[in-house]
């Protein structure tokens, strides 16, 4: 079980007051990834300028407290960074920036890392470029599939 008491103050802060929640009108890149482990979903919108610097990042997350907090922290960490720098941001870095996560919640932070990669992949595809060191994220969600099959 995960309890409020198991989360660090920073995790709770980023969960209660998430930074950069929302959508973007004309994103440079958007990526949606799903967590095979517990079925959570994260979407990341990026606004990247001509010099390849991430101007804005927005996210939406369907997941636990740790998933929301890691999304929030990940967007904070990549803002103002170059694409290359953004690629260096690992799930460990996000977890550390939050003063750690309960062990059972470590997998949630992977989602944030993958969402960044998926959004960058989308950006590269839109611009017909390849980003060195970036491979197609494995669990990019096919947006037409199962999630629309829910009954009203």
């Amino acid at each position: 079980m995960s309890q409020t008491t198991e989360y660090s103050k920073k995790v709770l802060d980023h969960f209660m007051n998430p930074r950069n929640v929302g959508e973007m009108e004309d994103p440079s890149g958007v990526g949606t990834v799903g967590n095979a482990k517990c079925g959570d979903i994260m979407r990341m919108y990026l606004d990247i300028d001509e010099d390849g610097v991430i101007r804005e990042a927005k996210f939406k997350t369907f997941g636990c407290g740790a998933a929301v907090a890691t999304s929030s922290m990940a967007t904070e960490l990549i803002k103002g960074k170059t694409i290359k720098e953004a690629l260096q941001i690992t799930n460990q870095a996000v977890a550390e920036a939050l003063d750690g996560l309960p062990k059972i919640k470590l997998h949630c932070s992977l989602l944030a890392e993958q969402a960044i990669h998926a959004a960058l992949w989308d950006y590269a595809e839109r611009h017909g470029i390849t980003i060195e060191g970036l491979t197609k994220p494995v669990n990019d969600i096919d947006e037409t599939e199962e999630f629309y099959q829910m009954e009203e």
């Binding site: 929640v21 949606t32 994260m42 979407r43 996210f59 939406k60 997350t61």
Partner: peptide, 13 residues
């Protein structure tokens, strides 16, 4: 819901 990608998609659909 305002932060859920599923809800966003649902509303758009």
């Amino acid at each position: 819901r305002s932060m859920s990608p599923l809800y966003e998609d649902f509303i758009k659909e």
